[in-house]
């Protein structure tokens, strides 16, 4: 570990021994001595803090994974710390035979795909138009969007609007109300402003290309990193969203996975799998319930963990772009 933190040479001459004896000379040196130890002390504190932070973040996730493969009684007795005990995959087999959970997965995949497509298309088109300095009324439109970042109509009015639109209990109530994030719009606009050279448009215009033609054949192919980033942001956000579904959906068959998760994990609702068979005793149902909970956390999070390595480069870039612009 130490060679990941090369100590700054000027501050730590290796050959000066640390004197432990007192005396006036020692007192005079105290100022320098403190300096000499400052950087190594910093490095120790820094590595210590980071290792602790990494442990605190990774261990709970790791524990959930091993617990999902462990016999619940072993967890109860405190035997599961580093490795699964009493290996079982019963939780997973039950999850895959539970129609509610599978329906939740299917709904989430549908909502996430449709929602992401709508959001990304809308944002890219609008952001490009807003990035054009020759768009008449550009400031006005920008203001129209930015105001909504600071003022909103509130939960109740939002609910009533969606209800008046007749969208309750439909996919549109999940997919539309949060479709365009102003923040993402600003990020996308900044990208177009910085990455689409004006000369290119002049050239295209001279060749007689329309704005549509230019946007679809030149701008979009030039903006692959942005498109990728936008898709990723919305995939994650849509997959994890639950609140709109909670307030706008009543029909349990339309629940996305996150709502099913909420019922199973937090409200400990007994699912079909958990309570299967009248012969199951209460204890057996509870045992299965635990297994299903751990397993569902793993299964619902895996799609994101698969995506994470692909997105991290773009994601940090996007976060920075947004930050710089603000």
């Amino acid at each position: 570990m130490t060679n990941t933190f090369p100590i700054v040479k000027t501050s730590l001459p290796a050959e000066t021994p640390v004197s432990t004896q007192g005396g006036p000379q020692q007192q005079a040196k105290r100022g320098r001595k403190r300096d000499r130890f400052a950087d190594p002390l910093f490095n120790t504190v820094a590595i210590g803090t980071l290792l602790l932070a990494i442990l605190v973040i990774i261990y709970p996730m790791y524990f959930i994974v091993i617990a999902s493969f462990s016999e619940p009684s072993e967890i109860l007795n405190g035997n599961v710390w580093l490795w699964p005990a009493g290996f079982t995959i019963e939780g997973y087999t039950r999850i895959f035979s539970d129609s509610t959970i599978l329906q939740g997965f299917a709904n989430s995949i549908l909502y996430t795909t449709v929602g992401t497509a709508i959001s990304v298309a809308t944002i890219l088109c609008a952001a490009y138009a807003l990035s054009r300095k020759d768009l008449y009324g550009r400031t006005f439109f920008m203001l129209l969007f930015i105001i909504t970042m600071f003022i909103d109509g509130g939960l109740i009015a939002r609910y009533l609007v969606v209800r008046d639109l007749g969208m309750l209990d439909s996919i549109w109530a999940v997919v539309l109300p949060g479709a365009v994030g102003v923040w993402n719009l600003i990020i996308a606009r900044a990208f177009f402003e910085n990455n689409v050279p004006g000369e290119l448009r002049d050239a295209a215009q001279m060749d007689g290309a329309s704005d549509f033609r230019f946007f679809f054949s030149v701008v979009l192919p030039l903006s692959k990193p942005l498109i990728f980033l936008m898709i990723m942001i919305h995939l994650v956000a849509n997959w994890n969203a639950f609140f709109d579904a909670l307030i706008f959906l009543n029909d349990e068959n339309k629940y996305p996975l996150q709502l099913v998760l909420r019922n199973v994990l937090i409200q400990s609702e007994v699912t079909a799998a958990g309570g299967a068979g009248a012969l199951d005793s209460y204890a057996a149902a509870q045992r299965l319930g635990e297994l299903i909970k751990y397993g569902m956390i793993v299964l619902s999070t895996i799609p994101l963990l698969i995506v994470l390595p692909f997105m991290q480069k773009h994601f940090t870039k996007g976060a920075l772009l947004g930050a710089v612009k603000s």
Binding site: T122, A129, T148, G153, A157, F212
Partner: peptide, 27 residues
């Protein structure tokens, strides 16, 4: 000259009018 740009902008503007400004009015 730039009607196509407004067409590109239209869906997003419709969106905020319906889902942001209408609720504000409804408040």
């Amino acid at each position: 000259r730039s009607w196509q740009l407004y067409v590109l902008l239209l869906p997003a503007v419709l969106y905020i009018l319906v889902f942001k400004y209408w609720p504000m009015y409804g408040a």
